[in-house]
Design a protein around this nucleic acid. Structure first.
Length: 427
RNA sequence: GCCCCGAUAGUGUAGCGGCCUAUCAUACAGGCCUGUCGAGCCUGUGACACGGGUUCAAAUCCCGUUCGGGGCGCCA
């Protein structure tokens, strides 16, 4: 039976174990060799003496990153660095790696990010990269757990849609038999329709596509969006759900894998809601006091966001964005120039955008006009507002951006397995 | 879309008109070695993105192409 390398510490000296994994490293001294085997949980030294296994000579010639299955006795009094080794009695070669590797897994030379992405399967063998996705998995599990406890229904809405909706963002066109279709930029309209359906609280985790020709370290053309929408709540309540979901998920993940994260130099702090809040207009005033020249209606440049990040550290909300800066479905505040909207920032990056939504049919129609949208494109959506739509609010959270910033990564592609950006379509 | 920058062995780099038959590291191949742990030592293989031009001479200068990086705009 296979044992994961991390579990070996629980075993007693002299026990028989089987580990399976990749040959990370070999040190060969003619009649003796040391093989460092790696699996998804760790590494261990395998000690092989000539004569101790039948296929010694064959194994002596094997290449790094080949896959083997090792059976042997545990020696916990080894002089190896970890103090533990397996004295192999049988080693089965399962797969032989070609040489040279297009990218060294443990080589003492760096590789360009482009080279790493071109050979992502090898790049992800590095524990410091693998753990980003273990982290993401745990984080998402925590968010799901929180949402479930709050009685949200997880849903799946179409990613192929018929109309280029929402205005603003460019969409990717696709051929859909004899019709023109698009890859959806967000589940926004569908979430809202489900609110009309009486689902009450919905959330979705899925891909979102944006055909924007960006070339930055924080944009992708395909990313994972965690979207939520709930009936009979306002923007304030939506913010509460958000900060609680994130705090719960982060704290839970630290409990589960905090020591692993620390060991690989990812340092992350526990969170305590509520997160600080600042209004758009207050931010504007603050930024102008810091020497910027921003007027009402201006978006915050990366420079502005960095200044705000210094003030707040960690997470903070910017609330009350101007109407002109928000999509047509955003609910206005009592001051019609402002909306009941918010962004959640982590360091200098926006990770969530949310708001209370318009639920009044007439108001929605007016907004199509104001934003220069063709209401015919939205008929399927608008209909859901005509026959009983409760007030509602929600948000969309960018998973890769969240992970990127929590772990202090410098590029959103680092927290994306196979990123799709302006030029990259493979692997 | 705009603006900068870059491309040299598998990987990462040095070189920036003649000293380049191109540096170093790492990887790879071969050899020596019974306890290594960034093992060590010896030997070897391996590269100037592509196409034009300038020049007596181009990895080096100029133009174009392709590919890539970063910033801005915009956004999650």
């Amino acid at each position: 039976m296979r044992t994961y390398i991390a579990d070996i510490e629980k075993f007693e000296d002299g026990m028989e174990v089987t580990v399976q994994g990749w040959i990370q490293e070999m040190r060969k001294i003619k009649n003796l060799m040391f093989i460092i085997v790696r699996d998804n949980t760790g590494i261990i030294q395998i000690t092989v003496k000539k004569g101790s296994i039948p296929n010694y000579d064959e194994l002596y010639e094997i290449t790094r990153e080949s896959v083997i299955s090792v059976n042997g006795l545990l020696n916990k009094k080894s002089i190896s660095r970890s103090g533990t080794e397996i004295l192999a009695s049988n080693i089965e070669i399962l797969s032989i790696a070609d040489t040279p590797l297009p990218l060294g897994v443990i080589d003492r030379v760096s590789a360009d990010f482009d080279t790493r992405l071109n050979n992502r399967f090898l790049d992800l063998r590095k524990p410091e990269h693998l753990i980003i996705f273990k982290f993401e998995s745990q984080l998402l599990f925590g968010i799901r757990e929180y949402m479930n406890r709050e009685n949200f229904i997880e849903v799946h809405t179409p990613k192929i849609v018929g109309a280029a909706t929402e205005g603003g963002a460019d969409l990717f066109g696709v051929e859909y038999f004899e019709k023109k279709a698009y890859l959806n930029q967000s589940p926004q309209l569908y979430k809202e329709m489900l609110i009309s359906s009486g689902f009450d609280k919905v959330f979705e985790v899925g891909p979102a596509f944006r055909a924007e020709k960006e070339n930055t370290v924080r944009h992708l053309n395909e990313f994972t969006s965690i979207d939520m929408e709930a009936a009979f709540i306002d923007d304030k309540k939506a913010m509460e759900y958000l900060e609680r979901a994130i705090s719960y998920a982060v704290n839970r993940t630290i409990d589960i894998m905090g020591t692993d994260l620390d060991r690989l130099e990812y340092h992350i702090d526990r969170l305590e809601p509520p997160f600080p809040r600042i209004t758009y207009e207050e931010s504007l005033k603050y930024l102008n006091n810091q020497g910027l020249k921003l007027s009402f209606g201006d978006d915050f440049s990366p420079e502005a966001n960095k200044i705000l990040a210094q003030k707040f550290k960690g997470f903070y909300f910017i609330t009350g964005w101007p109407t002109d800066m928000r999509p047509f479905y955003t609910h206005p505040d009592t001051n019609p120039r402002l909306t009941k909207s918010f962004d959640l920032q982590l360091a200098d990056i926006e990770v969530t955008s949310g708001a209370q939504r318009i639920h009044n049919y007439r108001m929605l129609e007016e907004n199509f006009m104001k934003k220069g949208l063709n209401k015919n494109d939205f008929e399927f959506y608008e209909k859901a507002f005509k026959y009983g739509m409760p007030p509602h609010a929600g948000w969309g959270l960018g998973l890769e951006r969240l992970v990127m910033n929590l772990l202090g990564l410098n590029n959103v592609r680092e927290s994306t397995l196979f990123p799709r950006d302006r030029t990259r379509l493979s692997p």
